[in-house]
């Protein structure tokens, strides 16, 4: 068993393997649970497709005679919009209130009794959900879009793998933000305020309503480096359409890693504070 002491369990195989097995099992359960909502997925795909048409036409109209706008050509905008519509469901940008609901009803106490840390288990469920969404929601717009619009196909061999990594990180970053927003329920009676702020802010700051490149340069840079929002949508999409060079793209994904780690750490911190409060005040 090696050097296992009473206080510190170093990450030996004996600890890590079961941890991964548990994590994997929760991911798989999350996937299966969401796979049962097939009709809702169909309805969602139809909606994403309609908005894909709308946004695509509007952004293309902005390219004017030059055929480019803010560093995107028409094909790049096509890919940006349609992949973005697919990603919306993968990152689950809106509508996740599971944690807040469980806090409000007090069911969250059951989560604390489990041997897995709440942040970890919610993240695992969310990754499972994202996995199903990647199949059911990301693929259809990527198929439909090119039938009606010119789209950009990545040229560098490393772009697609990097995009997939970036999407995974986007799910984690988005999850971290949603978890924090939901966790305000530990302190607030009604979480609609934070929820509304999140819904409004995330859509516009993540690059859904318009590519952030449409904003003045200083504002885009501030958003990029000082907030996690571009990391949930804009960065993966920019990586996919190769708006910038490969080294820059690697840097952007690195930025996502930083935000993912920061946010998860913050989630754990908030969770610990909340638990202490629960223990002291008895909910």
């Amino acid at each position: 068993m090696g050097s296992v002491t009473a206080t510190v369990g170093p990450p030996t195989d004996a600890h890590v393997t079961p941890w991964f097995r548990t994590f994997g099992a929760i991911v798989a359960a999350g996937f299966r649970r969401h796979a049962t909502y097939r009709q809702a997925a169909v309805a969602g795909v139809v909606t994403n497709t309609v908005f894909g048409f709308l946004r695509c036409y509007i952004f293309l109209a902005a390219t004017g005679a030059a055929g480019t706008v803010a560093g995107y050509d028409r094909a790049q905008l096509g890919t940006f919009v349609w992949a973005g519509q697919g990603l919306l469901a993968v990152i689950a940008i809106w509508g996740w209130t599971d944690l807040a609901d469980r806090i409000r009803t007090g069911e969250v106490a059951a989560d604390l009794l489990r041997p897995v840390h709440p942040v970890t288990s919610y993240l695992a469920v969310d990754l499972g959900r994202a996995g199903f969404a990647a199949l059911a929601r990301l693929v259809p717009p990527l198929v439909v879009g090119p039938l009606f619009f010119a789209v950009y196909l990545p040229r560098h061999w490393a772009t697609v793998p990097l995009f997939l990594v970036s999407v995974l990180l986007a799910v984690v970053v988005c999850f971290g933000c949603r978890y924090l927003v939901n966790a305000t329920a530990y302190w607030l009676q009604d979480v609609r305020g934070p929820m509304i702020l999140w819904t409004l802010g995330s859509g516009v700051l993540a690059g859904l309503y318009f590519p952030l490149g449409f904003l003045p340069g200083w504002l885009e840079a501030t958003l990029r480096y000082a907030t996690p929002f571009p990391g949930i949508l804009q960065i993966p999409l920019d990586v996919l359409v190769e708006r910038e060079s490969m080294p820059t793209n690697l840097g952007l994904v690195g930025l996502q890693v930083v935000w993912a780690v920061l946010l998860l750490a913050l989630c754990r911190l908030v969770q610990r504070r909340a638990e202490r409060r629960l223990v002291v005040q008895g909910g």
Partner: peptide, 16 residues
């Protein structure tokens, strides 16, 4: 934000 979106788009183009 709906209106802001329109304004932002007109920030990068003169005509739509």
């Amino acid at each position: 934000f709906d209106v802001v979106t329109v304004l932002v788009i007109f920030g990068v183009t003169r005509e739509l």
